[in-house]
Design a protein around this nucleic acid. Structure first.
Lengths: 190, 190, 190, 190
DNA sequence: AATGAATGAGCATTCATTCAT
DNA sequence: GATGAATGAATGCTCATTCAT
């Protein structure tokens, strides 16, 4: 055989995904992954250089998508709402991977992923909101509230994406979430 | 002599709290706790049966408070807003313990604490909101949105409690948070 | 107990010394050392941070002696012959340690010890011999021969030190060795 | 078809030789040998039963030559000097193999090869020297000195053979080495 | 004949827990 | 009551060897 057997590789990846999701990167056990995949521990290392590499292999495609999104955002081609729909698109393909990056990546280079994405969201929220507030002469005493809004919104987004397989339901809920968070947001600062 | 010295016990508890907060239950090191408390590792096990027991001892008073609150809630003595202020009260005494329960309890029986508290919040939100919505003839297509609201609100609450030491700032931000989440909430369902 | 039990520590050191001598640093097995010392593997790491540290602990006192010697040599307080006797003195205390450094230290920071000591010997030999040869107008076609002389002499020195416990016999043999190597050495270049 | 292709076999042998020379028997990697030979690892085991067998296959012809030499020596057909030239002759064909046997055979049955060859040299030295010494009425207090001479001489011999490719330089240095070691050796025992 | 995927014992190291003192 | 030495199962990872194809 010229290439490593995809079936085994996929079995390992599938079990690794479960293990990382259940126990996080640091507490995940390579032996448990191998056992559950029905593979000798040594064989895992034919397919993946080490634990970190196995983790990256799972998480990287999702991260690359996120980077693509970030780039678009920096060019300011999209408004906050459009970004959310774009994220949704990405999530459809990499739901679990993103959840792992967000919650289970301590000990890896992705540890700060959630912070990054939240910072991005915060910036978008601020950019949308501050002009409105200034127009109305409203001053925000503690800007940490923007951080909280961004963080909780992202949290809610992931909750929805975590739960739903079907697209229509997801879209509906995210639509609701955005209304709840951002409709008349300026008025709630009065 | 079978008694145990409170001073030693407290020193262990104090250092354990720091360790659990910094590294979570699973990654906390009993050795580090003992060393930092200036106590022999073996002696820790005279005061606490094992790692889990030590964890419980730290977290239980806070959990019991939470149970007390829950009881009051079941008697429907408090509205949602009042509950929040009650929680804040509890937090003043057991802030770190609660944050540990919320974020660092994986591997213990408190792992689902955040889910529990969120369920409670969800019930309170529903109880407050549904009558209003029914009055207006608004039907909520997917009630998972209540779960999301509760969860993100709780997340925001803990974010604020995590960050601030001083009460006035905390109160102000939580006030803002509640306005953002719950003012005219019914209108955002129209 | 305030201090680690010396008896166990010494048992580990003794077995480690055997293991390193038999199999070299890289192939030595920490488990084998622990087993032979009648100690649980985990306990070895109470006494020594890791394999390298255990190795260093064995070898360092000998190395420090060697450094002392080298310093004296750089100040040119001693002739080559005097150095040899000085080495002998050092060896009386650290025979096995030096043999380990010389032959079994691949993979450690002492890997080049033999090369260093040989270079030192070579310099001493050259410094002693070249003036004599120049006086006689003898030119050495390939100076690698000095390297060979130094290396083989050092080898012989270690052989003798390896074999003998008793000092008189050692002294006698090293005396013979030096005569064989260096008496009329210049004449054998004619 | 049960035959094995000589070309493949030779490629494996060539790469194994390099690997054993660079890293020694114990640390040599079968995988590296297979990769460098451009052969599947499994296929190596069609040609050679295991690592030890592969090592033996490389080293045996050189060892057989050495045995042949030993035989001649036992028949006392050669003097010591003649033996050295004979060795050199053998080395011309099996230089690397002999150096492997001497330095890199730990963990194999050839581990004691150097000791064997040294014993042989020692006997030759003794046989050549003792009659001379007896003639002069010189008594050697500790015959271990012969062992040392033999051992260091062999060491020097291999140093030279290790370093030089070209024959003239090799011959010159070995010539010098023999002069240094054996010219007027009897006189240095007076 | 050849491939390379698979195996599993082995390695150094860590750490919650026990126990003799 | 206190000590810290001792235990051993578990971790990530390597590598000679086997075996189905």
């Amino acid at each position: 055989m010229q290439y490593l057997k995809d079936e085994v590789r996929n079995r390992i990846l599938a079990e690794a995904m479960k293990e990382f999701q259940n126990r996080g990167f640091l507490n995940a056990s390579m032996r448990a992954i191998a056992d559950n995949a029905g593979v000798a521990i040594g064989n895992v290392y034919r397919y993946f250089k080490n634990k970190e590499d196995l983790f990256n292999e799972i998480v990287e495609p999702a991260y690359r998508c996120f980077l693509g999104m970030e780039k678009l955002h920096k060019q300011e081609l999209y408004s906050f709402k459009e970004i959310v729909y774009y994220i949704m698109e990405v999530m459809k393909e990499y739901k679990i991977q993103l959840l792992i990056m967000v919650d289970k990546s301590k000990g890896t280079k992705y540890a700060s992923f959630k912070a990054e994405i939240t910072k991005l969201a915060e910036k978008a929220i601020r950019d949308g909101l501050l002009p409105e507030l200034q127009k109305k002469g409203i001053e925000v005493k503690d800007p940490f509230i923007f951080c909280v809004i961004a963080s909780t919104f992202i949290e809610g987004l992931f909750m929805i994406l975590r739960k739903y397989e079907e697209e229509a339901a997801t879209r509906y809920l995210i639509h609701r979430l955005m209304i709840l968070f951002f409709d008349d947001l300026d008025k709630r600062f009065e």
